[in-house]
Design a protein around this nucleic acid. Structure first.
Lengths: 128, 128
DNA sequence: AGTATATCTTCACGTCTGTGCAGGTTTCTC
DNA sequence: GAGAAACCTGCACAGACGTGAAGATATACT
């Protein structure tokens, strides 16, 4: 990599393919803060267990930890830890009823992403 | 956590809140393989730098590494590594033109997720 | 009060990930 | 061919992450 003698950082020296377009795109680009928030949300969905849990909730509406573990075919510890993450991120909401704690989706954006991605799965033949 | 004396695994012993619904939801749940694929895709978007890069490409259509680094305000190494990940995952496609390598989005699903998420950003006032 | 069930938390461990640095490759220009 | 520019790769390392074990808490039932 080449370090610019001008700026001192490893970036193309000063030639831009299209300086105007670079500025234009940079101006309309999502801010770093927005990107961090978005990435955080996508990261929630970046784990198979969490994805399945969320799809189970999308389908069932509301499920207790016990049943989530059964549906997703995993243990309660995994579910509990996943729920803590999802809860603190605002993706799900919980409600206690006796010994059971019921979870449900609580984020329209997450719900939308799941919904559309499931459709995408259905339309995908087998190419990946 | 309580280990079931029957099954030996740490799961609610045998009482289900609703056995029928559990089976029903489990039957229509995305498979583990599908969940792994989906999670892998979401994981691509689970990093602020990659998110911004992808949005830059969504906006610009095509950009060289040099300009991507300028737009996203980062160094070429980061961009290169990010592009390798995105490329091997099939999210972007590259084209060489002289000294420059141009990248563009190459995945309809990713494009859709980005598009809808940007709309979501626009509609979000400030609550997160 | 005592026990069992459901859920949560803490801790520790192995692995994955993002990052910077240094060097390598390809292409263009002189 | 020499040098510069754009891009890529390998390495090392700190930090984050997913996981399981063990114990704690909360609620129900007798």
């Amino acid at each position: 990599m080449q370090v610019s003698p001008v700026t001192g950082i490893d970036r193309c020296v000063e030639t831009r393919i299209d300086e105007g377009r670079v500025e234009s795109v940079a101006a309309s680009l999502v801010s770093l803060d927005e990107a961090v928030d978005l990435a955080e949300m996508f990261r929630l969905l970046g784990d198979p267990t969490r994805v399945r849990i969320l799809y189970a909730l999308l389908e069932a509406g509301e499920l207790c930890v016990c049943d989530i573990a059964a549906v997703v075919d995993t243990n309660e510890t995994k579910v509990s830890q996943a729920m803590r993450l999802l809860r603190s991120a605002g993706a799900v909401r919980n409600r206690r009823d006796g010994r059971n704690v019921f979870y449900r989706l609580d984020d329209a954006h997450v719900r939308m992403l799941l919904d559309l991605s499931r459709e995408h799965l259905a339309h995908t033949v087998g190419d990946d």
